[in-house]
Structure formats: C-alpha cells, structure tokens
Design a protein around this nucleic acid. Sequence first.
DNA 1: CGACCGATTTGCT
DNA 2: GCAAATCGGTCGT
Length: 197
Amino acid sequence: MTRSADLRSLLERPVLEAAPRLLGAVLRHGDVACRLTEVEAYDGAHDPGSHAYRGPTPRNAVMFGPAGHLYVYFTYGMHWCANVVTGPEGEASAVLLRAGEVVAGLDLARERRPGTRDRDLCRGPARLARALGLDRDVLGVDLLDPASPVRLLPGEGAGDVLSGPRVGLSAGHETPWRFWLADEPTVSPYRPGRPLR
DNA sequence: CGACCGATTTGCT
DNA sequence: GCAAATCGGTCGT
C-alpha cells in the first residue's frame, strides 16, 4: 500500500491500476476496522457488469462523482455491498470490496454477525459491509476526509497479489478484474489465479 | 403501476 | 451442491 498522502492520487488512477493497490489498506467505520484482502474492479463506462454502465441514475450517482467516496448499494433484497469510487470524476469506475480481515473492533463485528467464525466475518462483499456496519447511512462519504465516519487508511506492506479474470464477462477475458492477497484465510475459498506482474 | 433482475448469503441435503 | 429469501432500481405498459 501507499502512504496516506498518496491515497487520493492513487484512487484517481484508472481502476485496474488502483484496485490491486488497495489490498492491504484498512477500512475503518467507528471501532471496527478491516484490512482488505480481496477486491474487484468495475470500469464504469466499459464494463457491462458495472452499475454505471447504463449511465447515471439516482442510485449510482456517487459513482459519477470524485474518487475516494464510498458507493454503497443494496442488493438481493437483503444485502449491502461497498465500493470505493476511483478514476477521474465522471468516469464512474469503482472497486468492490469483496473480503478482508477484521483488525479492530472484533467484539462489535462478531455482534453484527452472530455465529460466524472470525475469519468469515468479512469473507464476501455483503458480509464485509455487515461486519463494518456499512449501509445507506454512509453512502457517498469521502473516505479520505478525516472527519468522515468511514475512513480508508494506508496499510502495511501487503504480500503477494494474485489476479484472475472475472467470469461471465464477454469483454475483458484478458483483463484481470479480481485481485486478492495470497495465503489469506479471509479470501473466498479457491480461485485460479496468477501473480500480478 | 407492475414485472423482472440482481457485483449474495445462508441453510439444508 | 442447490434453492430459498427478499426488495430497490430500472424499464416497459
């Protein structure tokens, strides 16, 4: 990861460049903090899988705003998922936070996800959002503003980054959309992947 | 106004 | 491994 001063400029980079470098960074909401171990890139304008693909709507408006803000959406009638907006303003790309390791506020995280093993607390995008207490209340907050309830903080150096193509997309079979840290128990079970160049 | 879909998780088999 | 649960956004009538 990078130092704090570089976070803003990193997030303004193209999403495929910013996404893997978010691994190891820490997302904190109140007392609960999570070290990111798995993310996925969504390229607003060109990615059919992106919520921004069909243009701006009230729901995805945050994606079209400046980088570094939190895009939270509700899906499957019961889950919230969290994204970090990246790229130049108006490009509407974002990084879906898929998994992480709870590094602070373990008690509260367990409370929010009863009966869950610690390593599963943030294993999966909706699980991560739940453990951190992320919902519409924090939609659009600036993660780089020290006054925000949700903050993105630089992490220690991360281990090896693996990447793999996202299934179900016709375009971008050559492009790695998914990034995760090797040898992390909090990452989703098994994915075929290769080291990031 | 109504129908259909979805960047998923969970629980049961 | 598979199906249920559950509802806001989006689009068509």
